[in-house]
């Protein structure tokens, strides 16, 4: 098949949307944290923990949605840890974030080994099945790509709409955005910056964990080590690429996923002339490139990474 023809096939776009889904959840999670003024580098570890928690709940006999809920709760717990250390205590968000990633990842691996000491190949579960939407799914290419996915992918798109609506249309969203831009103004309204920021990090971390759980309960059907493989870091790049706006970040995630799906197909038709590692590098290199392109124009939340102490100026 021709390298360009691929772009017009429905199966390519179905794959792209599937690859985008976990990134969409986690990017929305990181976006909420950063809009409130907290960089959450715990994302990579929280996604790992979420992937395991979701899978393990189902593996132990729970239902798929229960798995998702458990993943979200585990994510929220790590979020609470990150928030406690960085918001009221004002510790370095870089160091704490790396610490949370290391802790969440190692706790996950420890629990995995404890729960399944003898297994060599990871056990499988029955994952979410595709749920075509009648009517819409028969629209060629676009309909197939968007409406023959699993329920979790639909939920990912719902999460973007929900985050956008809450951020721009509700008082609590206004408080979150203001906490990231001008925290004193929030405090002047009688709202606690600490509570807003901590709440945002907890909710955001829960979304990251759901993104991780997508991989084990929808995209694949088992948990294995290193399965997040830098997706969390890519989501941080996607937030910057999307200028901290949910809609733009969604487009970024889909573009990125399309590129990722495309490099896999190019790899197949290139016939081994170019080493496969070059294709695998592309998504990471693309993320760096995207950051360079947007960084100059980027409008960071002004109070991002700046701890807030009440009564201090």
């Amino acid at each position: 098949m021709d390298a360009l023809e691929i772009l017009f096939t429905a199966s390519f776009w179905v794959a792209a949307i599937r690859i985008a889904s976990p990134l969409i959840f986690a990017t929305m999670g990181e976006l909420i944290c950063e809009r409130a003024g907290v960089l959450n580098l715990g994302i990579e570890g929280i996604m790992t923990a979420g992937a395991f928690a979701g899978w393990f709940t189902v593996y132990s006999g729970g239902n798929l949605w229960a798995g998702l809920l458990v993943a979200a709760l585990v994510g929220a717990m790590f979020g609470l840890l990150h928030a406690t250390l960085t918001v009221p205590l004002g510790l370095s968000q870089h160091v704490v974030g790396i610490g949370v990633t290391l802790l969440a990842t190692s706790l996950t691996y420890y629990t995995y080994r404890l729960a399944l000491p003898e297994v060599t190949s990871p056990p499988k579960i029955e994952p979410f099945q595709p749920l075509p939407i009648p009517g819409l799914s028969s629209i060629p290419v676009v309909g197939e790509a968007l409406f023959t996915q699993t329920p979790l992918t639909y939920l990912a798109f719902v999460s973007v709409a929900a985050v956008a609506w809450i951020l721009y249309r509700t008082p609590i969203g206004l408080a979150v955005r203001a906490a990231g831009e001008n925290p004193s103004a929030v405090e002047a309204q009688g709202i606690s910056v600490t509570s807003i920021r901590m709440g945002a990090v907890v909710v955001g971390s829960a979304l990251m964990a759901v993104g991780g759980a997508f991989l084990t309960t929808s995209a694949f059907n088992s948990f294995f080590f290193q399965m997040i493989n830098g997706r969390g870091w890519i989501c941080i790049a996607l937030v910057v690429f999307g200028s901290w706006r949910p809609g733009k970040a969604l487009i970024g995630a889909i573009l990125f996923a399309a590129f990722d799906a495309y490099q896999v197909r190019l790899q197949q038709i290139s016939g081994g002339i170019v080493p496969y590692q070059v294709f695998l590098m592309m998504p990471y290199a693309l993320s760096i490139l995207a950051l360079i392109l947007v960084a100059r124009r980027a409008t960071y939340p002004k109070a991002l990474m700046i701890p807030y102490q009440k009564g201090e100026r």
Binding site: S92, G99, T105, Y110
Partner: peptide, 17 residues
Amino acid sequence: PSYIADVMVATSLLTMV
């Protein structure tokens, strides 16, 4: 499991800060 070492090291980072 020997992953207890990774947990200890990560925990000590957070308790240390």
